[in-house]
Design a protein around this nucleic acid. Structure first.
Length: 285
DNA sequence: CCAGTCCCCTGGCCGC
DNA sequence: TGCGGCCAGGGGACTG
């Protein structure tokens, strides 16, 4: 469930505690995440100063002079800033301990992920990790500036041009991180609902005008979700432990059978591209 | 290149 | 109460 708003919420919560600090130690408790944590990260990171916390797509990057720690929250991951010595709980897979700036105890950046779909990888300075290659444009203006390497801008014209000839459902197209990054199952459902587009429609059959509505909806909804601290369904917490409140504003996601907020008819639910999908058969065409 | 399927993993929930 | 079965989902790997 961490999609772009949850990752951005995490980034913003982390940054003030982490930027400018040096790494005191890395503790790996369970290195077998989505990919094994490279053991040498525990030697590369300590002593480095974290210059910035950035986000690209749903990845977080902790930048140091030597390279960047690359983190993904997977589906159930969260990162918290805790006092050094805070009790370790189940599924706390690794810590990045931060040196105390002056007097007072240090803090620890602690990664918890019950399902272990997240990852911690290393990107050497000056390189782009293979996982970050081929990602589409950022939908918002922050982060990497709304463009992908190559300068594509996310807007309706871009979606229209890229979707020509595609027979896959528009929802699948929208969730493909090569199309645009950061949109997962929750926000795809919400954006399509807001734009009045059926998730089942072939991507190549959606008009330019409706793609403009969709691009606007994606940006608006992601922005609103960030303002609410993301969506907490089960696992997601911001680094200070706060849940996200966007769940109260969901119109479609998770509401199959419930009345459409627009017309009151029951929302439909089906599998689209292996994902639970909810939409209004009346308002979305 | 594109579309579709499978799989990684665990907690929560449902039904018996 | 216990347990089996199913579901959730990001996204890479693989197949056709």
């Amino acid at each position: 469930m961490p999609e772009l708003p949850e990752v951005e919420t995490t980034r913003r919560g982390l940054a003030p505690h982490v930027e400018g600090r040096r790494v005191a130690a890395v503790v790996l408790r369970r290195p077998d995440l989505r990919w094994p944590i490279p053991p040498d990260i525990a030697e590369r990171l300590p002593g480095q100063r974290i210059d910035a916390v950035r986000r690209r797509a749903k990845y977080l990057l902790l930048d140091t002079a030597a390279g960047s720690a690359l983190l993904h929250l997977g589906m159930s991951g969260s990162l918290r800033v805790l006092p050094a010595g805070a009790p370790v709980r189940p599924h706390d897979h690794f810590d990045i301990a931060l040196a105390a700036p002056g007097r007072g105890g240090g803090r620890v950046l602690r990664f918890n992920d019950p399902r272990r779909f997240g990852c911690l990888l290393w990107q050497p300075a000056g390189e782009t990790h293979p996982l970050l290659r081929g990602l589409g444009p950022e939908p918002l203006d922050d982060g990497f500036g709304g463009t992908a390497p190559g300068g594509t801008t996310f807007d309706g014209d871009y979606l229209f041009a890229r979707s020509r000839g595609r027979r896959a459902p528009v929802k699948t197209f929208l969730m493909d991180q090569r199309t645009v990054v950061g949109v997962g199952n929750i926000y795809a459902a919400e954006a399509l609902f807001a734009a009045g587009i059926s998730p089942l429609r072939a991507a190549g059959k959606v008009s330019r005008e409706r793609y403009r509505l969709l691009a606007d909806a994606v940006r608006r909804i992601l922005g609103q979700a960030i303002d609410r601290g993301g969506t907490t369904l089960r696992d997601f917490l911001a680094p200070d432990g706060a849940p996200g409140y966007f769940v109260q504003e969901l119109s479609a996601y998770g509401r199959g059978g419930a009345p459409c907020p627009n017309c009151g008819r029951p929302l439909k639910q089906a599998q689209v591209g292996q994902r639970a999908t909810v939409w209004c058969g009346h308002c979305q065409r």
